[in-house]
């Protein structure tokens, strides 16, 4: 199932830096996001979109490859799509999503490109970043606007500015937004991805924040530095104890299915569907770590 792909660490790479594009795949990120938006100056936009398209065509990346395009309502978004879609990225990330129409517009452009280049329909996925209060209130509509949608992300810096506050170490100001985004993503059955943490030298706060969002239920986090990839993945790695317990749950579940037992129990506790799903998830993470 496509949506069960792990997206623990989605790493941004500036789209206009050839050395970074060349090495983007070596750090073990689950997804690399080549950025054509904020990391790229206006004078560099054209060079970046062609460089990114060429990198996707020629280099073999061992992970999911995404492109963050400029917003489709800006003068650059359409040009970005025109340049990168023929290279068949796995995923297009739309910034500053505020309504379902933006998603549908991009969906149509992607569909046309898939047809024109002979790619399988629906093969190029989409995700959207919510970066405003207005967008957040439309989060579920955005998440469900296209079957291509695989994830919602929160763009913390812009969102906090829109709230007229600043980011704190504890993240109090993002609590409502993260919760709401998570609910929307879960209701739509897609991934929820947390915002970047921009002080790469403050590992302590980064770890605390990552633990917080994992506990909240997020599937992963956007990162801006290769060093953050490992930290996120360590936090999202199940412990040996969790893995062993998950294996026992799955075994008990399979055993019950084979014997048509109505009620499944393990160590005196009832095993129902959510517990089985959670166990499957733990094992999927564990398998990803082993890879």
């Amino acid at each position: 199932m496509q949506q069960e792909r792990l997206r623990r660490a989605m790493m941004f790479m500036p789209g206009n830096n050839p050395a970074m594009l060349q090495n983007a795949g070596i750090y073990g990120a689950d997804t690399v996001i080549f950025d054509l938006e904020d990391a790229v100056a206006i004078s560099e936009k054209d060079a970046a979109r062609h460089l990114v398209a060429s990198a996707i065509r020629r280099l073999k990346y061992p992970c999911e490859v995404a492109v963050r395009i400029n917003h489709i309502q800006t003068p650059y978004g359409l040009e970005d799509l025109k340049a990168v879609l023929p290279a068949q990225p796995d995923l297009i990330r739309l910034p500053k999503a505020e309504n379902a129409r933006d998603i549908r517009d991009v969906d149509e452009i992607i569909a046309a490109a898939e047809k024109a280049h002979g790619f399988a329909p629906g093969s190029i996925k989409m995700m959207a970043a919510i970066e405003t209060a207005k967008g957040l209130l439309q989060a579920y509509d955005i998440a469900t606007a296209s079957p291509r949608m695989v994830a919602l992300a929160i763009g913390g810096e812009d969102f906090v500015a829109d709230l007229k506050t600043t980011r704190s170490k504890e993240g109090t100001e993002l609590f409502a937004a993260r919760s709401h985004l998570l609910l929307a993503a879960r209701a739509a059955g897609i991934n929820a991805i947390d915002t970047v943490f921009s002080n790469v030298n403050d590992e302590e706060t980064f770890i605390a924040e990552t633990k917080l969002i994992k506990q909240m239920g997020f599937d992963g986090k956007s990162v801006i530095n290769p060093r953050q990839v490992r930290l996120v993945q360590e936090i999202f790695t199940p412990t040996e104890k969790e893995i062993r317990q998950a294996e026992r749950i799955i075994a008990a579940y399979k055993d019950a299915l084979e014997h048509n037992s109505g009620v499944i129990a393990l160590d005196g506790k009832m095993i129902d569907t959510p517990i089985v799903i959670r166990a499957e998830r733990v094992l999927a993470y564990a398998a990803a770590v082993r890879r």
Binding site: N225, P226, R227
Partner: peptide
């Protein structure tokens, strides 16, 4: 070193 390539 903080160079991610060297660290890897």
């Amino acid at each position: 070193s903080r160079n991610p390539r060297e660290l890897l």
